[in-house]
Structures are given as C-alpha cells and as structure tokens.
Amino acid sequence: MRNRTLVLGVTALAVAITGMAAPSFAARDKMTPEQRAERMIKRLDTNSDNKVSLDEFQARMTTNFKTFDTNGDGQISADEMKAKREAFREARKAWQDAKSKDGKERDAALAHLKEARPAMVPGMRPKTFKRVDTDGNGSLSAAEVASASEKMFKRRDKNGDGVIDAADFSKKV
C-alpha cells in the first residue's frame, strides 16, 4: 500500500511539473509585445539612440517603396504589390520544403526567403491599398506612401513625443 501511495505521489508530482513547464516552452516561440517593439526599434533606429524619429521612419519607407516599385516608374501598382506578396509565398513554401534537406539547399532557400520577404509599406493588403491610394489611380505614389506612413508613425507614437521608443509600447501610455 505504501509503495502504491509513493508511486501515485511521484506520478502526480511529475504531471504537475510537466504542466507548469509546458507554457514556458510554448512561450519561447511567441515574442512578447515588448520584444517585438525592441526588434522594430533596433531595425529602424539608424542613429543608435534607441528611438525612431519620423525622419528615420520615412527613410525606411522610401527604401521599402523602391523594393516594391519593380519597374522604376515611381508608382507601386496593385500588380507589383501582388507579385511581391506571391514571390514571398513561393519562397516561404520552398523554405518549408527545404527545411529537412541538406545544408546548402536549406541555406539557399533561407537566403531566397530573406530576399523575397516584402518590406513594410502602407497599403500592402488589398483593402489598405485602396485606402492609401488617395487619388484613386490604382497605384501608390511615393507621396501617398509617405503620407500614410506619417499617419502610421503618429499612431505608433502613443505618447506624442515625436519619437517611437520603448515608452510607446508600455501599458501605462
């Protein structure tokens, strides 16, 4: 009887410990809002002051705009936007297929995925594309993207201090 109680106790303890550990393992795969904010700030902060100014944000949007404007006409058409998204989908599928393959093929697929990954620009989704296309001509100009990105910046600058920093991502703002 005593052995049975001991086995049941150890089993219950093992189940309890496993139950407590599982959420911590699952949490590793998901980034917290603070971690996403830190990553975004690090990526956009060109002068290393741990803040993103509107100028830094606009400079990134200008660079990103050029990656979508594949024909170089100063406009991003809906077709150019769609082609960029489709190229990324195909690269992501190739990466998923190559994950189980040898190093060189897997590395090549990952490099292609990184290259095909679309940069952030206002209007990437069809519904937002129409909203950003303020003149209704079916394409986005650099001015339309700049205007939409300024609005995006102001939404992210929760405390209105003119920069995006860690304070804009805290719950107290």
Rank of each mutant, 00 (worst) to 15 (best):
residue 5 T to F: 14
residue 5 T to V: 12
residue 8 L to P: 00
residue 9 G to Y: 04
residue 10 V to I: 08
residue 10 V to K: 02
residue 12 A to N: 06
residue 13 L to H: 00
residue 13 L to N: 01
residue 14 A to F: 05
residue 15 V to M: 09
residue 16 A to I: 05
residue 19 G to S: 03
residue 24 S to P: 00
residue 24 S to Q: 13
residue 24 S to M: 14
residue 27 A to P: 02
residue 28 R to E: 12
residue 30 K to D: 11
residue 30 K to E: 13
residue 31 M to H: 13
residue 35 Q to D: 15
residue 35 Q to H: 04
residue 36 R to M: 09
residue 36 R to P: 02
residue 39 R to N: 09
residue 44 L to C: 01
residue 46 T to I: 03
residue 46 T to D: 07
residue 47 N to G: 09
residue 48 S to T: 04
residue 51 K to Q: 13
residue 52 V to H: 10
residue 54 L to C: 02
residue 54 L to T: 00
residue 56 E to D: 11
residue 57 F to N: 00
residue 58 Q to C: 00
residue 59 A to D: 05
residue 59 A to E: 09
residue 64 N to P: 02
residue 65 F to S: 08
residue 67 T to P: 07
residue 67 T to F: 07
residue 68 F to H: 08
residue 72 G to R: 07
residue 75 Q to P: 00
residue 75 Q to A: 15
residue 81 M to R: 09
residue 81 M to Y: 02
residue 83 A to C: 01
residue 83 A to D: 15
residue 86 E to D: 15
residue 87 A to I: 09
residue 88 F to L: 06
residue 90 E to S: 14
residue 91 A to F: 06
residue 92 R to Y: 06
residue 93 K to F: 06
residue 97 D to Q: 12
residue 97 D to M: 05
residue 98 A to S: 04
residue 100 S to A: 12
residue 105 E to P: 08
residue 109 A to P: 02
residue 110 L to P: 01
residue 111 A to E: 13
residue 114 K to D: 14
residue 115 E to W: 04
residue 116 A to Y: 03
residue 118 P to M: 14
residue 119 A to F: 09
residue 119 A to V: 07
residue 120 M to L: 12
residue 120 M to T: 13
residue 121 V to D: 02
residue 122 P to E: 07
residue 122 P to K: 14
residue 125 R to A: 06
residue 126 P to D: 08
residue 127 K to N: 13
residue 130 K to M: 03
residue 134 T to R: 11
residue 135 D to R: 11
residue 135 D to H: 03
residue 135 D to W: 05
residue 138 G to C: 02
residue 138 G to T: 12
residue 142 A to M: 04
residue 143 A to N: 13
residue 143 A to W: 02
residue 145 V to D: 07
residue 149 S to G: 07
residue 151 K to L: 04
residue 155 R to F: 06
residue 156 R to E: 07
residue 157 D to Y: 11
residue 157 D to K: 10
residue 160 G to P: 03
residue 162 G to T: 08
residue 162 G to D: 09
residue 164 I to N: 10
residue 166 A to F: 02
residue 168 D to L: 03
residue 173 V to W: 04
